[in-house]
Computed example of a mutant assay.
Amino acid sequence: MFTPAGTARQSLHPKDNPFNWPDFRFGRNGAPRWGSLATATVVRKWGNPRAPLKLTRTYAFPKGATAVHRWTDSGFDGSPIERERLVPMLARSLDRLLPTLKAINADVFAKRAFEFAFWMKLRAQQRMSGIYEPCFTQLVDLALDDYRGKRVLDIGCGPLGTLEWADMTVERVGLDPLANLYQKLGTDSHKMTYVTAHSESIPYPDGHFDIVSCFNALDHVDDLDQTIAEIKRVVAKGGIFLLGVDTNHAATIAEPITIDWDIGKKFHPEMSIEVERHYERSSTNYIDVMNSKAFFDHADPRPRPGIIILKLRKVL
């Protein structure tokens, strides 16, 4: 039925359909109705399962009405379409399986796999481009000059160059357990050092960094208390820790830690709070949240997640 090599182009009858496509439920904005697959056009470079795939489906409906669905896909590795569809689906499936994954000690592996898929999707969309520097300055009441000559560590940095803006520093390090995999996403060209390590065991001596940050990552860690102990250890006396994290959300495969509003107390007595702000979670972009000035209404009893921003200074 198929050409064994080269490019195949076939018009298939439903009974010959190797993909076994089900009937299509039509009418999202109206009364649902069922249609049967009448024809399907398949274009694939055979012999390579990851080669570009183009599908054209034609559905037949009562009284001669038809609907055509076209889908062009270049495989999970390189297709924004596939990532848009599969990453949220993967997250929902893994979240439902979280208790089982924990029971068999597979939750951390699943979390890493999902996080890498998430960064592949985000990098393709380039949603975060250009927003990092304000997170390190405007969001936490710091200026670029505050970074001059300093050693800076960003925990849970991801692969998008969170510290590329910081040319005035003497050292800028991004720490992430997936940093070695991020090389596939182009981190080798970034103007910062990536270190593959867990936040529970930071491979630097006591007091090495003047400024340590952790934005949208503290709820991703494997051990919250050990991570906090390591942060307090590597920040120099008089140095600063910057934190931005979602609060009061249900545990998920990627964010297994639920953070409370009093997270700042866990850094006492070694650190004191200089800036603390609570926001409604109107966006996942912290700068958009800051500009919205939608401060969290603690008088509203509805259970819901929020965002806490902290600047702490090491005093002991």
Score class of each variant (00 low, 15 high):
4 P>R: 13
5 A>C: 08
5 A>N: 13
5 A>W: 13
8 A>L: 14
13 H>C: 02
18 P>A: 07
19 F>V: 09
20 N>C: 13
21 W>K: 05
21 W>R: 07
23 D>G: 07
23 D>I: 12
24 F>T: 08
25 R>I: 13
26 F>L: 12
27 G>I: 12
28 R>A: 12
31 A>F: 02
40 A>H: 05
47 G>T: 10
47 G>P: 05
48 N>C: 04
49 P>F: 08
51 A>P: 01
57 R>T: 09
58 T>V: 15
58 T>Y: 02
59 Y>M: 13
61 F>C: 14
63 K>L: 07
65 A>D: 13
71 W>K: 09
71 W>F: 11
71 W>P: 03
72 T>C: 00
73 D>L: 10
77 D>A: 14
80 P>G: 12
81 I>Q: 15
83 R>K: 14
83 R>T: 05
84 E>I: 08
90 L>G: 15
90 L>S: 09
96 R>T: 12
98 L>P: 01
98 L>H: 01
99 P>L: 08
101 L>S: 07
102 K>S: 04
103 A>F: 10
103 A>E: 11
104 I>Y: 02
104 I>D: 00
109 F>C: 06
110 A>R: 10
111 K>H: 08
114 F>D: 03
115 E>V: 14
119 W>L: 03
121 K>F: 06
122 L>K: 09
123 R>P: 00
124 A>H: 06
125 Q>M: 13
126 Q>R: 14
128 M>L: 15
134 P>V: 08
135 C>H: 11
137 T>L: 12
139 L>E: 06
140 V>G: 04
141 D>A: 15
143 A>K: 13
146 D>K: 03
146 D>C: 09
146 D>S: 10
150 K>Q: 14
152 V>N: 02
153 L>R: 04
154 D>V: 05
159 P>Q: 01
160 L>K: 00
160 L>G: 07
163 L>R: 11
167 D>T: 15
168 M>N: 09
171 E>L: 15
172 R>I: 01
173 V>G: 05
174 G>S: 06
174 G>K: 11
175 L>F: 00
189 S>M: 12
190 H>Q: 15
194 Y>D: 00
194 Y>S: 01
195 V>E: 07
197 A>P: 04
199 S>F: 04
202 I>F: 00
206 D>I: 02
207 G>A: 10
208 H>I: 01
212 V>R: 07
216 N>F: 15
216 N>W: 09
218 L>W: 00
219 D>G: 10
220 H>G: 04
225 D>L: 02
228 I>T: 10
229 A>Q: 12
230 E>G: 03
235 V>Q: 11
242 L>G: 00
243 L>Y: 02
244 G>D: 02
247 T>P: 01
247 T>I: 03
250 A>C: 06
250 A>H: 15
252 T>E: 08
253 I>C: 15
253 I>W: 01
253 I>Q: 11
254 A>Q: 06
254 A>R: 10
255 E>L: 01
255 E>I: 02
256 P>I: 05
257 I>T: 09
269 P>T: 12
270 E>Y: 07
273 I>M: 13
278 H>R: 15
282 S>Q: 09
284 T>D: 05
285 N>L: 08
286 Y>V: 07
286 Y>K: 06
288 D>I: 06
288 D>V: 07
292 S>Y: 11
293 K>T: 09
293 K>M: 11
296 F>Y: 15
302 R>A: 14
303 P>T: 12
305 P>C: 06
309 I>F: 10
310 L>V: 08
316 L>M: 05
